[in-house]
């Protein structure tokens, strides 16, 4: 059985969900650089260009760009948000999506989670649990 890693953090929106992680190594941008009908990033040359995030745990360092960041929380949405840092851009996005969300972790989640890992987000009890994918 694979090892699981638990990291404590601050819950932004309550709830529990387990899903596969989709990790953006760089900040993500909403408004015209995301397509919420398809649920993917349209920013040219972005590492997650056109990779659907619906139903995934969307893991990213921080939001960037305009107030249209909230489009990550409308239309096709992730199962949960896990991010290193946030501001009012991610706050409004999470309020639109109303799915579990966490930030301000004791260990940087981006140093642990890779795309394809299984992540249990337990925002009710303030931690995430990562099961690494089989290599």
């Amino acid at each position: 059985m694979s090892e699981t890693i638990r990291i404590k953090g601050r819950a932004e929106w309550p709830g529990k969900v387990t899903a596969e992680a989709l990790v953006s190594p760089i900040p993500i941008e909403g408004f015209a650089n995301v397509d919420d009908v398809h649920g993917y990033i349209t920013e040219r040359y972005h590492p997650l260009f056109k990779i659907p995030y619906e139903g995934k745990i969307l893991v990213f360092p921080s939001p960037r760009g305009s107030g249209g960041f909230m489009k990550f929380g409308t239309g096709k949405i992730p199962a949960a948000y896990v991010h290193r840092r946030g501001n009012t851009l991610s706050d409004a996005c999470i309020m639109c999506a109303r799915v579990p969300a966490m930030t301000d972790f004791e260990t940087d989640p981006l140093s642990v989670i890779e795309t394809g890992d299984t992540v249990f987000v337990n925002a009710d009890e303030g931690y995430i649990e990562i099961t690494k994918k089989e290599k």
Binding site: N33, E43, K50
Partner: peptide
Amino acid sequence: AYYISGLFP
């Protein structure tokens, strides 16, 4: 430049 390019993926 950055936003208009994202509208034409």
